Amino acid sequence: MRWHYPFFDELSIDWPSKLRPALIAAAGARSGAELHDTLLFLLAELRDNHAQVKHLSRSSAGIVPLSWRRISDEIIVVGGTASALARVPVGSRIVEFDGIPAAEAYLSMDRRVSAATQGYRDSVTPFSMSLGQIGALKTFLVQPPTSGENETIALPYLDREIFDPVVREPRPATGAILADGIVYVDLEMLDQAGWAAVLPKVLEAKAVVFDVRGYITNTAFGIMGHFTDTRLWSPTWQTPIIVATGTSGYQNSRWAVMPAQPRIDAKAFFLVDGRSGSADETLAQIVRDNRLGVFVGEPTAGTNGNIASFDVPCGFSVRFTGMRAIGADGASIHGKGIVPEHVVKPTLSGIREGRDEVLEAAVAIAAGG
C-alpha cells in the first residue's frame, strides 16, 4: 500500500507512524471482530472514500429500508422505501439504534469509516450503519415529527442489490416536468432505454435537471455527448509505476466521450452532494472542465480513480484508491471535491415539510434563466 496509494504526500499522511501502532494492536487482537476494527481504524487514516476492509464475519449484503442524516446534533430520517416510511415518516428523529443512544452509535461508526471530505463522511456514516445481514432485524427508537411519543420499530435488512438504489429521499420520476420547460432526469437509475424514452422531452425543454446524488450508471457519460460538438476528455488517470525501490512516476491515460446526435440545446443543471463520488466525479470533472452545466447542492465526495485491492490473512480483503484523477486545471480533486456554483444544504424544517430544497433551488435557478 505504501507505494500503490498515491495520496500520502498530497494529504501529508505519515503512514509509518500510523502503521506501527496498528500492527501492534492487530497482533494483540483477541477476535476477528477486534482485528477488523483495528484494520478499519488504520484505513480511516488514509482519508480515502474507497478505503474499506471487508470480512465474511460482518455481512454488508443487507440494507435496512430507511435512510437518515445528521442535522446539527440530531439523527433525522430523510428517506426510505414506501413501506418503511409508512411506519417511520420522513423527519422522524432517531433516538436509539438497537438500544444504543443514536449519537453514540453514530460516533462509533464514524470512527470506522475512511472519508476524504466531511460531505462524504456525512453520507457514508449513516449508510454504513444501515448495512447488515439479510433477514436480520434492526431496532429503532424513533420520535415521529408530529408526536412527542417515542416508538420502537423493527425493520429487516433487505437484499442490498435490489433495494440499495431506492433507499433514499423521495424523488420525481425521470421525465417529470418540474416547471414550465424544465425536465428532471435521475442519473442514478437511468439505463439506455430510459434515456431513449425521456430524450424527446429533453429536446423540447429549456432546461434539464440531472440528479447525481447517488452512484450513476454508465449511460450518463454518453448523454454528455449530446451537449457538445467536440470531443470530451475524461480526467487524466495517473497510475503509480512501481519499481523495486518504490514509485517511479505515473502512467497516464484517458478516454473520450464523442459528440452525439441529436444535439441538446437545453441548459443543464446537476444536483450533487457528498454521495457524488468516484464515477459521479468523473462526470462532474467532465462537466466542469467543458462548461457543460451548473452544479447545485453540496460539494462532491472528493475521491475518484480505480480501486486497488489485496487480501490479508484471516479472510480480510482491503481496498483503496489506486490512481489519481487529474482535471483540465492540472489538479486532483482528492480531499476537496467539486464545490457547486450554488451551495444548498437540506434543513430540518425543509425535510419535515417534505421538500427537496436542493431540487427546488435548481428549478428556481433554471426558471430564472
Rank of each mutant, 00 (worst) to 15 (best):
R231D: 09
A256Q: 15
W237Q: 02
S253M: 10
D289I: 02
R231N: 07
G297Q: 03
D265Q: 14
S248P: 00
Y250Q: 05
I242V: 12
P299H: 04
V272D: 04
T236R: 12
G274T: 06
T239G: 03
V294K: 01
A284I: 10
L283V: 10
A260C: 11
D289H: 01
P259T: 10
F270S: 01
D273M: 11
V296W: 01
E298R: 14
D229G: 10
A279G: 00
T245N: 12
V294T: 14
I241C: 08
G277P: 05
G274L: 08
R231C: 00
G302P: 02
T239R: 13
Q251M: 12
A260R: 15
P235F: 03
P299W: 06
G293V: 04
G297D: 05
G297R: 03
F295S: 00
N290V: 04
T245R: 13
T239H: 08
L271P: 07
L292P: 04
L271I: 11
T230E: 11
G277Q: 07
G293T: 01
N290R: 03
R263E: 07
I264L: 12
V294D: 00
D280A: 12
D280V: 10
G302S: 04
V272P: 07
P299Q: 05
P299R: 02
T239L: 09
G305Q: 06
V272F: 06
A260W: 03
V294G: 00
A256W: 12
Q238G: 01
D229F: 00
N290A: 10
K267A: 14
M258P: 01
N290P: 03
S253G: 14
S248R: 13
T236H: 02
W233C: 09
A256P: 05
A244S: 15
N252H: 13
N290G: 04
G305H: 05
Q251F: 11
G293F: 02
R254C: 13
F295D: 04
G302V: 01
T282C: 05
A244Q: 14
V287P: 02
A260Q: 15
T282G: 05
F270T: 03
G249S: 09
K267R: 15
G302I: 01
G277V: 05
L292W: 02
V257K: 05
D289R: 05
L292N: 02
D273P: 05
T247W: 01
S278W: 11
M258Y: 14
V243G: 07
G293N: 03
I264T: 08
R231I: 13
I264M: 11
G246R: 06
S276F: 08
G274E: 03
T236I: 12
N252Y: 07
S253T: 14
G249I: 07
S234H: 07
A279F: 12
A284P: 02
A279Y: 10
A244C: 03
V272M: 11
F227T: 01
S278I: 07
A266V: 09
A268H: 08
V257Q: 09
Q285W: 01
V287Y: 02
